[in-house]
Each structure stands twice: as structure tokens, then as C-alpha cells.
Amino acid sequence: MQSSFDLQYIIELMPILIKYLGVTMEMALWGFLFALILSLSLALIRVFKVTFIQHLAALFISFFRGTPLLVQLFILYYGLPQFMPIFIGMDAFTAAIIGLSLHFSAYMAESIRAAILGIDKSQMEACLSIGMTRLQAMKRIILPQAARVATPSLMNYFIDMIKSTSLAFTLGVAEIMAKAQMEASSSFKFFESFLAVALVYWVVVLFFTRIQHLLEKRLNKAY
């Protein structure tokens, strides 16, 4: 049976979905914060070629870039508790944040590393020549410049992460995708429900794209 498009339904569904947007954004923001910390550490380990752990870092990055996010989430939430009891109490929301941050940190580490390597090596030498340590040089001279280079791609990963939070519904997190799914199954208006949720994501992404442009403009003005 072919049903007619129900615009009214979409309009009514919007406020219901938006109520769950908070969960989505919470996952994205926490996930991004942890991913940022982790990726910076990974990038520094690789740039400084820290003995032995640099190989672990490379392995970590290879694994999390080489396997699908959905598979990683399943391993983390459904798989690990069977072997490691400490994961048994972990709720789906936490698992999703951990999974997202591990996954994205692998990608972000590579773009931070590339940004650091892109800064003229002679500035590091200049730091050393006046008696600074490599860590001081990194903190005060190299990273501030690398941050400017890396910002556009990191913002892209953030936007990508917002969209990827939709996978958390497969773990049972009650975010907007899960809500849309639920509404769709009860009303049978699948097209309208999923279109509605797509529109919400789209508007959020447009908002952050705008912020990205403003941020880049500001950073480029500095020097």
C-alpha cells in the first residue's frame, strides 16, 4: 500500500526528537574531548618516537582506523564484559563515548601528527639553540602553530562524530536515532520519521560548520 507523505507528522515529531538531542550532543562532546586528549598523546608519542610505546601507538591507530566503528562498539559493549568483569557494569552511554573517542582519536592523532611535522623543523632547532627542552619547544612554539593547521580537520572529525553517535542506538542508548526508530515502528511512518531525524542532524551540522568557519577566520587573523 502506498501512503501519502505526511508533513504534519514530521512537524509534530520534531520537538519530540529534539528532546533527545541532548543525549546525542553529550556523547559527541565528551567523546570529542577524550579523543582530543588521547590523540594529542598518541601524536606526541609518535613524533618524539618514544621507545617501544611508539609501536603500541602505531598498532592502536592501525586497529582503530582499520576496523568499522560499529564493530568496535559491539566488541566494547557486548564482547568485553564476557572476559573482563570490570566492564559488566558499564552502561551503553559510557560504552558509546569510550568507543567513539577511541575510534576518532586514531584519525585525529594522524592529523595532529601531520600538522606538527608540517611546522618548519628549524623552529624546533631554534628553541633548542636557546636552551629550551624539546617538550618546552613543543608546548610553546610548535603546538600552538600546529593547532592552527589542524583545526579545520579536527572540526571535520567533530562533525563526523556527531553523526556517528547515531550508531549508539545499536547499544540501546536512547538518543535521537533510537527515538526516531521507536516512533517509526509505532506509527509505521518510516520515511517521515527518518527524514525528520536526518533534518535534525543536518541543522546541527550546519550550525557547527558555521562555527568552524568563524574559528578558522579568527585563527588565520592571528599572525
Binding site: D120, S122, Q123, E125, A126, C127, S129, P144
Partner: peptide, 13 residues
Amino acid sequence: SSFVFQNYSLFAN
């Protein structure tokens, strides 16, 4: 000691 570089190597930021 301190060093003066051929290409200046000033801190760009």
C-alpha cells in the same frame, strides 16, 4: 651558546 640561523628560524607565532 646561542645560534643565529641562515634562514632566521624565528618563532612564527
